[in-house]
């Protein structure tokens, strides 16, 4: 069953198409990689799928809800980890989650469960401004999981983290997907996408230029690499961002 259904989704800003008629589906329990260079339209797509931005045209359903007409019903069913560690720094970790629990109308017991899930129980009473990058990231993940969403949007969840924390977060992502949560992942780490994602879409200048399993992508381009399977990074460089290297600008 598809948890995310996107059909010809388009968003224009002052006549420029940031996202250009993209279509794809994501199954329940799937980790879906959404890869592209900076400015390709990843964040705009996430903002539309999470109800922060209205599409110019096209449609999408997330967790069975239309992102425009059923946005209020959709919001409690999604969790979002942004590409920045946006937490309330003057509050403790527990208070950050308690506040989120009140917004999502979830039981206070979930706060402790979420803190335990990300290994922050011992730091629950500390003000978050004293937290390291890794602790902050674990806290924003705990906040996104607090209400047990059906779909989790992760925007570069391991960026700038040390390898230990990044590995823990990747393990958690796999564990959540195994439990049936749908994960929509953007990352600049191609190895991470290769390791985690069942399917990967490459986005370039607002358009999906390729969508397949990592193995499928590699097999499709093997012949152009002298018979050797290319890495996802090779394909990312080949398929996207030509304008960043001096080609035509969007």
């Amino acid at each position: 069953m598809d948890t995310i259904v996107v059909d010809s989704l388009t968003r224009e800003f002052d006549g420029t198409r940031a996202v250009d008629q993209i279509s794809f589906t994501v199954e329940a329990g799937e980790i879906f990689g959404f890869l592209g260079p900076n400015g390709a339209g990843k964040s705009t797509t996430i903002r539309m799928l999470t109800g922060q931005l209205r599409p110019t045209s096209g449609s999408a359903q997330v967790a069975g809800c239309d992102i425009v007409s059923q946005r209020d019903q959709m919001k409690p069913q999604i969790g979002v980890v942004f590409d920045c560690q946006n937490i309330y720094e003057r509050m403790t970790a527990r208070d950050n989650l308690r506040f989120a629990a009140r917004l999502y109308r979830v039981n206070g017991q979930r706060v402790d469960e979420a803190l335990e899930l990300v290994g922050l129980t011992d730091s629950a009473k500390k003000r978050t401004k004293t937290f390291s990058n890794g602790m902050r990231q674990r806290l924003v993940i705990a906040r996104a999981l607090l209400h047990q969403p059906k779909v989790l949007f992760l925007d570069e969840p391991t960026r700038g983290l040390d390898p230990h924390i990044a590995r823990d977060i990747r393990s958690l992502i796999v564990q959540l997907a195994e439990q049936g949560m749908t994960i929509f992942l953007t990352t600049h780490y191609m190895e991470e996408a290769d390791q985690l994602c069942r399917r990967v879409a490459f986005l370039d200048r607002g358009r999906i230029v390729a969508l397949d399993t990592p193995a499928g992508h590699k097999a499709a381009h093997q012949s152009t690499y002298g018979g050797e399977a290319p890495t996802l990074e090779d394909l990312f460089v080949k398929l996207t961002g030509s304008y960043l290297r001096g080609g035509e600008r969007m």
């Binding site: 999470t50 109800g51 922060q52 209020d72 919001k75 409690p76 999604i78 979002v80 942004f82 920045c84 946006n86 937490i87 309330y88 720094e89 989120a100 917004l103 999502y104 109308r105 906040r143």
Partner: peptide, 14 residues
């Protein structure tokens, strides 16, 4: 400025 507004806007808060 702290982008916590984004957190509010994806939560059930309108």
């Amino acid at each position: 400025e702290n982008k916590t507004m984004d957190v509010l806007m994806v939560s059930p808060a309108s």
